[in-house]
Design a protein around this nucleic acid. Structure first.
Lengths: 251, 251
DNA sequence: GTACCAGATGTGGTCAGACCACACCGCGCG
DNA sequence: CGCGCGGTGTGGTCTGACCACATCTGGTAC
């Protein structure tokens, strides 16, 4: 009863998705049609669509024809990134907690990847896998990071993509999206930290070596080693680039 | 340039938070004032506020006086819950991945809690802690679950609160919020699963015992045991109550 | 002097209508 | 047959109006 009109629209869309009437890729009715169907104003429909958009559930396109309109699109990384970024900005998520969570998730991801290789290796190029390397993307990114004279900002971007590629390779959508979000939440501090590094080429070289070491441990099927190495990699970087940016939260 | 008007408002608020001009508890300027200040329509301001609201960053209240208006409030659990719930509804997050992530996080939480106790116990009622039991809430919830004749729905609610209490006790805001969100995402299936259990009192008794066992392992300062027990607890429950609800994703 | 009640005030919530920019679609011209 | 230009329908935005609500204010009754 005391329901706000836009929440009604939100629930309508959610119900439709749960019932299977709306799936990823489907186009929603036009804003004017939804407005008329649900008996609410168009502005209320738009507020609900905005909410769905920031959560990564809807993508809108202007114009006309089949490619225009609002589409269902499950892109949780976008929503997760916005959530983390803003919660960090509002001091609801301490940066330390974000880093700790990333540490936790990434260590487990590395362990799982190594475990999978350990289970598969006894079969000697086992026929189970189709031969595709789930870490191909990660390896490609590592090679790209070897480019000499790479600007720090570009390196950081590739670094983020590498860590995300590991999470994606682990095959868990939720973990991958969360990792992407966590990274976004502390991106500002990561960049600031990199810029404060005195000898960046040296740091980049160290990071490259550590990345390779992590991948080697995964390939070797050694969960404990892979976990320890990635844990060390991340915590060491954050310790070395710690910026007193979280100070002064008291006015 | 091609910025949508409501994104401009969003960025304005984010910048203000990062600059410290807006902090949790502060009241935002009125919608009409923001509209005038930023040179956008009031509807665009409202769309941005709606986005902030679903992300758990803003709370609005009607009326007049000091308690009315839009306030900054970092309540990430709300935003995380909406995100997870809708992504699961859209099949962007497979239920299995949500469960796996919960397993991962909760196991680590239990291990950390046990580790903390292991480190503190040698000191024999060490003076480090103030004497407060961080798991007091969890214990209280366990006691509440002992109530005879408790309806399954109420039990499920207390169970969720118990698991969340563990995450909160670990002291990581991000993990706690994520856990709450994960739980919300699969709440529907959890309830459906419980209702399908033939001998619920027996199941409840088992769950109660497992909860106590987990807490005992934590108190004993045994990380491996605590982790294994909570892993077993969750995975066993989901295996026993598995509902073929994720089937039929193909129309 | 005090207690209380009624109107003024200002907030978010909603609706209606209008206009714009944009991308497609089809008719008609060359 | 090919091409261009206007029609059409989409989201994006703005404006103005009204409502519900909680508070504040001031006057009135006691």
């Amino acid at each position: 009863m005391s329901e706000r009109a836009w929440e009604l629209v939100l629930q309508h869309v959610e119900s439709a998705m749960l019932a299977g009437d709306l799936a990823v890729g489907d186009r929603l009715p036009g804003e004017r049609a939804l407005s008329a169907d649900l008996g609410v104003g168009r502005s209320s429909v738009r507020e609900a669509l905005r909410a769905l958009e920031v959560l990564g559930l809807v993508r809108t396109a202007t114009g006309s024809g089949p490619s225009a309109g609002a589409f269902i699109t499950a892109t949780p990384q976008g929503g997760m990134s916005a959530l983390m970024r803003l919660q960090v900005a509002a001091r609801g998520f301490p940066v330390a907690d974000v880093v700790a969570t990333r540490l936790l998730l990434e260590r487990t991801v590395a362990e799982r990847l190594a475990e999978r290789n350990a289970a598969a290796s006894p079969e000697a190029s086992g026929p189970v896998g189709t031969g595709d390397d789930p870490l191909a993307d990660a390896r490609r990114l590592l090679d790209a990071m070897d480019a000499p004279g790479l600007p720090a900002a570009d390196f950081i971007g590739l670094d983020a993509a590498f860590h995300l590629a590991l999470a994606v390779a682990a095959g868990n959508e939720v973990v991958a999206a969360t990792m992407a979000g966590l990274r976004s939440g502390i991106e500002r501090y990561t960049i600031a930290g990199a810029e404060a590094v005195a000898d960046w080429p040296r740091m980049a070289a160290r990071l490259r070596a550590e990345h390779r070491a992590v991948l080697d441990a995964i390939d070797a099927g050694d969960p404990a080693l892979a976990g320890a190495r990635i844990h060390e990699h991340i915590s060491r970087y954050h310790a070395d680039t710690a910026v007193p940016a979280t100070r002064g939260t008291r006015p």
